[in-house]
Amino acid sequence: MGVAVGEHAVREARRREPTASFLVVEAGHVPGDGAQCWERPAVADVVVVGVCVTGRGVLRAGDMPLGLHSGTAFVLPSGTPQSYRGDPRDPWSIWWLHVTGRLTAALLSVVVPEGGPKVVSIDDPYRTAWTMRDVLRTLEQDESHPALVEASASSWELLSGLAGRPARAGGRAGPGEVVRAHIDAHLDRPLKVTELARMVNLSESRFSAVFRMTTGMSVTAYVKQQRMLRARELLRTSSHLVTDIAALVGYTDPHYFSRQFHAMHGHSPTAYRLQVAPAGSSGEPDSPGTPTLAPTPSPGM
């Protein structure tokens, strides 16, 4: 599940700057098909920051239950015991970091001025997870001081980026967040505005206005954005065919998916995959066949 920096490397890092001030000591990931329930004891002087990329569940931080779903990040002060329970009907994928150091408490006071655990909504959970993945890979491969400086700098930037975001008390979500969580968890399915409005007991017109007010975009634009975010993640991290990725993000017509992807990113899906692929890997041809799933009709939502 995670990779922890060795005790000797931690001791050495605590003697040198900048890692004496801020140091990442562990990084980990639980995929959607991984363990969905686990517990972590309280650890002094270690702050936990994590992101739920897909799925949903409940994180109990001490005595406080926090609802997590796709697109939420969490920050837990040091000394917080944790219990994680993913929803078996909608398994979650979570990334996390453990950080420590002399400046951690000062940064935490800015990120969580109200004190206690904090859950926030973030715009791009995949980008956050990508940063955590890079930190994890660094810790897996190298515990030298330069490598720890690089990983800790990325962790500092990630944690400080949560400052100023309003906390969702107790993880309780408003109507906009409820719908966004549903959309993010069901990108491979038809998503109709009328049904989304019914979920939060609002008329279609009122719901559309509330959604635009809370997200800055229409429901249709948000769905397209999230589908493309998911497609980019799958292109970067999986070996799925482009036709399968199209279906997994809600496009029954893979040719239409490729046109939409190119219009948004300036590259075809395969060209994008080749651009971000590690050295030595290869993409696969943009020759969409018959998709393996049957999600939403194109070109609608």
Rank of each mutant, 00 (worst) to 15 (best):
V3E: 11
R11A: 15
R15H: 13
R15C: 11
E17N: 10
P18D: 08
H29I: 04
P31D: 08
Q36E: 09
C37K: 15
A42R: 02
V43S: 09
A44N: 09
V48N: 08
V49D: 00
G50V: 06
C52N: 06
V58S: 01
R60A: 07
A61C: 07
G71Q: 00
T72I: 05
T72K: 02
T72E: 04
S78F: 07
S78C: 11
T80N: 01
R89W: 13
S93T: 13
V99H: 01
A106S: 13
L108S: 04
V112G: 04
V112D: 04
G116C: 08
I122S: 00
I122T: 04
D124Q: 07
D134E: 15
V135W: 00
R137W: 14
T138L: 09
Q141A: 15
H145Y: 11
W156F: 13
G161S: 13
A167W: 02
E177H: 05
V179Y: 00
H182K: 06
H182Y: 13
S203H: 02
E204D: 10
M213Q: 14
V219T: 02
L234V: 06
L234Q: 00
H240E: 14
T243R: 02
V249F: 02
R259N: 08
Q260S: 13
G266W: 05
T270V: 09
V276I: 09
E284C: 11
D286F: 06
P291G: 04
A294K: 15
T296D: 15
G300L: 14
M301V: 11
